[in-house]
Nucleic acid binder design. Structure first.
Lengths: 98, 98
DNA sequence: CCGTTATTTGGTTATGTTGCCAAACAACAA
DNA sequence: TTGTTGTTTGGCAACATAACCAAATAACGG
Protein backbone atom coordinates (compact mmCIF):
# COMPACT_ATOMS: atom_id res chain seq x y z
CA UNK A 1 0.00 0.00 0.00
CA UNK A 2 1.61 3.28 -1.10
CA UNK A 3 1.08 6.80 0.26
CA UNK A 4 -1.57 7.78 -2.26
CA UNK A 5 -3.63 4.67 -1.57
CA UNK A 6 -3.34 5.36 2.14
CA UNK A 7 -4.57 8.91 1.64
CA UNK A 8 -7.62 7.74 -0.33
CA UNK A 9 -8.37 5.17 2.32
CA UNK A 10 -8.09 7.82 5.03
CA UNK A 11 -10.46 10.11 3.11
CA UNK A 12 -13.06 7.37 2.75
CA UNK A 13 -12.68 6.48 6.38
CA UNK A 14 -13.31 10.07 7.36
CA UNK A 15 -16.68 10.02 5.61
CA UNK A 16 -17.68 6.70 7.12
CA UNK A 17 -16.59 7.78 10.59
CA UNK A 18 -18.67 10.91 10.26
CA UNK A 19 -21.75 8.78 9.63
CA UNK A 20 -20.90 6.18 12.26
CA UNK A 21 -22.59 7.79 15.23
CA UNK A 22 -26.29 7.52 16.10
CA UNK A 23 -26.80 11.26 16.53
CA UNK A 24 -25.02 12.10 13.29
CA UNK A 25 -26.74 9.37 11.33
CA UNK A 26 -30.11 10.53 12.60
CA UNK A 27 -29.33 14.08 11.57
CA UNK A 28 -28.31 12.95 8.09
CA UNK A 29 -31.62 11.12 7.74
CA UNK A 30 -33.46 14.26 8.82
CA UNK A 31 -31.52 16.39 6.36
CA UNK A 32 -32.47 13.96 3.63
CA UNK A 33 -36.04 15.16 4.06
CA UNK A 34 -34.97 18.79 3.89
CA UNK A 35 -32.79 21.40 5.50
CA UNK A 36 -32.98 21.92 9.25
CA UNK A 37 -31.73 24.59 11.60
CA UNK A 38 -29.50 23.54 14.47
CA UNK A 39 -32.29 24.21 16.96
CA UNK A 40 -34.59 21.66 15.29
CA UNK A 41 -31.90 19.02 15.48
CA UNK A 42 -31.23 19.86 19.12
CA UNK A 43 -34.93 19.42 19.87
CA UNK A 44 -35.09 16.11 18.03
CA UNK A 45 -32.03 14.66 19.70
CA UNK A 46 -32.39 15.99 23.22
CA UNK A 47 -28.68 16.74 23.37
CA UNK A 48 -26.88 19.91 24.35
CA UNK A 49 -26.62 22.65 21.72
CA UNK A 50 -22.84 22.48 21.90
CA UNK A 51 -22.83 18.72 21.38
CA UNK A 52 -25.05 18.95 18.29
CA UNK A 53 -22.97 21.79 16.93
CA UNK A 54 -19.83 19.69 17.22
CA UNK A 55 -21.48 16.72 15.55
CA UNK A 56 -22.51 18.96 12.67
CA UNK A 57 -18.95 20.17 12.34
CA UNK A 58 -17.78 16.58 11.96
CA UNK A 59 -20.30 16.04 9.14
CA UNK A 60 -19.30 19.31 7.52
CA UNK A 61 -15.58 18.52 7.67
CA UNK A 62 -16.30 15.17 6.07
CA UNK A 63 -18.09 16.91 3.20
CA UNK A 64 -21.46 15.35 3.95
CA UNK A 65 -23.40 18.51 4.81
CA UNK A 66 -23.27 22.25 4.11
CA UNK A 67 -24.43 25.10 6.28
CA UNK A 68 -26.15 28.34 5.42
CA UNK A 69 -26.55 31.13 7.93
CA UNK A 70 -29.79 33.08 7.59
CA UNK A 71 -30.40 35.63 10.25
CA UNK A 72 -29.75 34.24 13.67
CA UNK A 73 -30.17 30.66 12.55
CA UNK A 74 -27.87 28.27 10.72
CA UNK A 75 -29.50 25.81 8.35
CA UNK A 76 -27.79 22.56 7.49
CA UNK A 77 -28.52 20.47 4.42
CA UNK A 78 -27.28 17.28 2.84
CA UNK A 79 -24.52 18.00 0.36
CA UNK A 80 -24.32 14.55 -1.23
CA UNK A 81 -27.75 12.89 -1.29
CA UNK A 82 -26.41 9.52 -2.48
CA UNK A 83 -25.27 8.98 1.08
CA UNK A 84 -28.78 7.78 1.76
CA UNK A 85 -28.78 5.15 -0.96
CA UNK A 86 -26.32 3.09 0.89
CA UNK A 87 -28.49 2.98 3.95
CA UNK A 88 -30.51 0.37 2.07
CA UNK A 89 -27.44 -1.78 1.98
CA UNK A 90 -26.75 -1.18 5.65
CA UNK A 91 -30.28 -2.33 6.32
CA UNK A 92 -29.57 -5.48 4.28
CA UNK A 93 -26.56 -6.14 6.49
CA UNK A 94 -28.70 -5.74 9.60
CA UNK A 95 -31.28 -8.21 8.32
CA UNK A 96 -28.57 -10.70 7.41
CA UNK A 97 -27.46 -10.52 10.99
CA UNK A 98 -30.68 -11.62 12.71
CA UNK B 1 -37.43 9.02 18.93
CA UNK B 2 -38.78 5.83 20.52
CA UNK B 3 -36.91 2.71 21.64
CA UNK B 4 -37.40 0.79 18.40
CA UNK B 5 -36.11 3.67 16.30
CA UNK B 6 -33.12 3.96 18.59
CA UNK B 7 -32.37 0.26 18.20
CA UNK B 8 -32.49 0.49 14.41
CA UNK B 9 -30.22 3.51 14.51
CA UNK B 10 -27.79 1.65 16.76
CA UNK B 11 -27.77 -1.32 14.41
CA UNK B 12 -27.00 0.86 11.39
CA UNK B 13 -24.32 2.66 13.34
CA UNK B 14 -22.69 -0.64 14.20
CA UNK B 15 -22.29 -1.48 10.51
CA UNK B 16 -20.93 1.95 9.65
CA UNK B 17 -18.53 1.89 12.59
CA UNK B 18 -17.23 -1.47 11.47
CA UNK B 19 -16.35 0.03 8.08
CA UNK B 20 -15.00 3.28 9.49
CA UNK B 21 -11.38 2.26 10.01
CA UNK B 22 -8.68 2.22 7.33
CA UNK B 23 -7.53 -1.31 8.06
CA UNK B 24 -11.05 -2.70 8.08
CA UNK B 25 -12.10 -0.79 4.97
CA UNK B 26 -9.03 -2.03 3.15
CA UNK B 27 -9.84 -5.59 4.12
CA UNK B 28 -13.41 -5.22 2.91
CA UNK B 29 -12.12 -3.99 -0.44
CA UNK B 30 -9.80 -6.98 -0.64
CA UNK B 31 -12.59 -9.38 0.22
CA UNK B 32 -14.66 -7.84 -2.55
CA UNK B 33 -12.16 -9.37 -4.97
CA UNK B 34 -12.38 -12.75 -3.29
CA UNK B 35 -11.92 -14.57 -0.02
CA UNK B 36 -8.65 -14.16 1.87
CA UNK B 37 -7.03 -15.98 4.74
CA UNK B 38 -6.05 -13.96 7.80
CA UNK B 39 -2.38 -14.36 6.93
CA UNK B 40 -2.82 -12.63 3.56
CA UNK B 41 -4.53 -9.68 5.23
CA UNK B 42 -1.77 -9.50 7.84
CA UNK B 43 0.82 -9.38 5.07
CA UNK B 44 -1.05 -6.69 3.18
CA UNK B 45 -1.59 -4.48 6.19
CA UNK B 46 1.68 -4.94 8.03
CA UNK B 47 -0.14 -5.13 11.34
CA UNK B 48 0.10 -7.69 14.10
CA UNK B 49 -1.85 -10.93 13.66
CA UNK B 50 -3.79 -10.21 16.82
CA UNK B 51 -4.72 -6.75 15.62
CA UNK B 52 -6.00 -8.01 12.28
CA UNK B 53 -7.89 -10.80 13.97
CA UNK B 54 -9.68 -8.30 16.19
CA UNK B 55 -10.54 -6.08 13.25
CA UNK B 56 -12.03 -9.08 11.48
CA UNK B 57 -14.09 -9.85 14.56
CA UNK B 58 -15.54 -6.35 14.44
CA UNK B 59 -16.54 -6.85 10.79
CA UNK B 60 -17.99 -10.27 11.60
CA UNK B 61 -20.01 -8.99 14.55
CA UNK B 62 -21.40 -6.27 12.32
CA UNK B 63 -22.54 -8.88 9.80
CA UNK B 64 -20.27 -7.64 7.03
CA UNK B 65 -18.05 -10.73 6.64
CA UNK B 66 -18.19 -14.47 7.30
CA UNK B 67 -15.35 -16.82 8.16
CA UNK B 68 -14.65 -20.37 7.10
CA UNK B 69 -12.00 -22.48 8.75
CA UNK B 70 -10.23 -24.88 6.40
CA UNK B 71 -7.34 -26.76 7.91
CA UNK B 72 -5.11 -24.42 9.85
CA UNK B 73 -6.28 -21.34 8.00
CA UNK B 74 -9.37 -19.20 8.38
CA UNK B 75 -10.78 -17.65 5.23
CA UNK B 76 -12.86 -14.52 5.38
CA UNK B 77 -15.27 -13.37 2.71
CA UNK B 78 -17.70 -10.54 2.15
CA UNK B 79 -21.17 -11.48 3.33
CA UNK B 80 -23.06 -8.53 1.84
CA UNK B 81 -21.45 -7.40 -1.43
CA UNK B 82 -23.64 -4.30 -1.73
CA UNK B 83 -21.40 -2.75 0.88
CA UNK B 84 -19.07 -1.88 -1.97
CA UNK B 85 -21.66 -0.03 -4.00
CA UNK B 86 -21.78 2.72 -1.52
CA UNK B 87 -18.08 3.28 -1.77
CA UNK B 88 -18.87 5.04 -5.04
CA UNK B 89 -20.92 7.51 -3.08
CA UNK B 90 -18.19 7.92 -0.50
CA UNK B 91 -15.84 8.73 -3.36
CA UNK B 92 -18.33 11.33 -4.58
CA UNK B 93 -18.26 12.92 -1.14
CA UNK B 94 -14.47 13.00 -1.21
CA UNK B 95 -14.44 14.70 -4.60
CA UNK B 96 -16.98 17.26 -3.44
CA UNK B 97 -14.59 18.12 -0.69
CA UNK B 98 -11.57 19.16 -2.77
C1' DC C 1 -25.91 50.62 23.34
C1' DC C 2 -28.13 46.67 25.97
C1' DG C 3 -30.50 42.49 26.10
C1' DT C 4 -31.97 38.30 23.96
C1' DT C 5 -31.70 34.36 21.01
C1' DA C 6 -29.02 31.08 18.05
C1' DT C 7 -24.82 29.03 17.54
C1' DT C 8 -19.86 27.99 18.18
C1' DT C 9 -15.62 27.33 20.91
C1' DG C 10 -12.86 25.90 24.98
C1' DG C 11 -12.20 22.98 28.67
C1' DT C 12 -12.79 18.89 31.46
C1' DT C 13 -14.03 14.28 32.53
C1' DA C 14 -15.69 9.80 31.28
C1' DT C 15 -15.65 6.34 28.02
C1' DG C 16 -14.21 3.78 23.82
C1' DT C 17 -10.74 2.30 20.44
C1' DT C 18 -6.34 0.71 18.76
C1' DG C 19 -2.14 -1.63 18.69
C1' DC C 20 1.27 -4.45 20.64
C1' DC C 21 2.86 -8.34 23.53
C1' DA C 22 2.27 -12.72 25.65
C1' DA C 23 -0.36 -16.63 26.23
C1' DA C 24 -3.86 -19.90 24.77
C1' DC C 25 -5.91 -22.87 21.19
C1' DA C 26 -6.48 -25.61 16.94
C1' DA C 27 -4.85 -28.41 13.18
C1' DC C 28 -1.63 -30.93 11.40
C1' DA C 29 3.23 -33.29 10.76
C1' DA C 30 7.03 -35.88 12.54
C1' DT D 1 3.74 -36.88 22.17
C1' DT D 2 6.21 -32.89 20.71
C1' DG D 3 6.79 -29.26 17.54
C1' DT D 4 5.18 -25.97 14.18
C1' DT D 5 2.10 -22.90 11.94
C1' DG D 6 -2.15 -20.11 11.84
C1' DT D 7 -5.37 -17.85 14.56
C1' DT D 8 -7.79 -16.03 18.67
C1' DT D 9 -8.00 -14.12 23.41
C1' DG D 10 -6.54 -11.31 27.46
C1' DG D 11 -4.34 -7.43 29.14
C1' DC D 12 -2.34 -3.05 29.13
C1' DA D 13 -0.79 1.74 27.59
C1' DA D 14 -1.66 5.38 24.24
C1' DC D 15 -4.76 7.87 22.02
C1' DA D 16 -9.37 9.50 20.30
C1' DT D 17 -14.24 10.62 21.09
C1' DA D 18 -18.42 12.32 23.36
C1' DA D 19 -21.04 14.71 26.63
C1' DC D 20 -21.72 18.51 29.53
C1' DC D 21 -20.91 23.28 31.35
C1' DA D 22 -19.34 27.88 30.81
C1' DA D 23 -17.88 31.47 28.04
C1' DA D 24 -17.46 33.73 23.51
C1' DT D 25 -19.51 35.34 19.18
C1' DA D 26 -23.21 36.85 15.85
C1' DA D 27 -27.59 38.82 14.54
C1' DC D 28 -31.24 41.23 15.65
C1' DG D 29 -34.89 44.19 18.45
C1' DG D 30 -35.80 47.83 21.60
Amino acid sequence: MNKKEKAILAAKTKVLKALAHPARLWMVEQLAVGERCVCELVDGLGLDFSTVSKHLLVLKNAGVVTDDKRGKQVFYSLKVPCVLNFMHCVEAVIKGEG
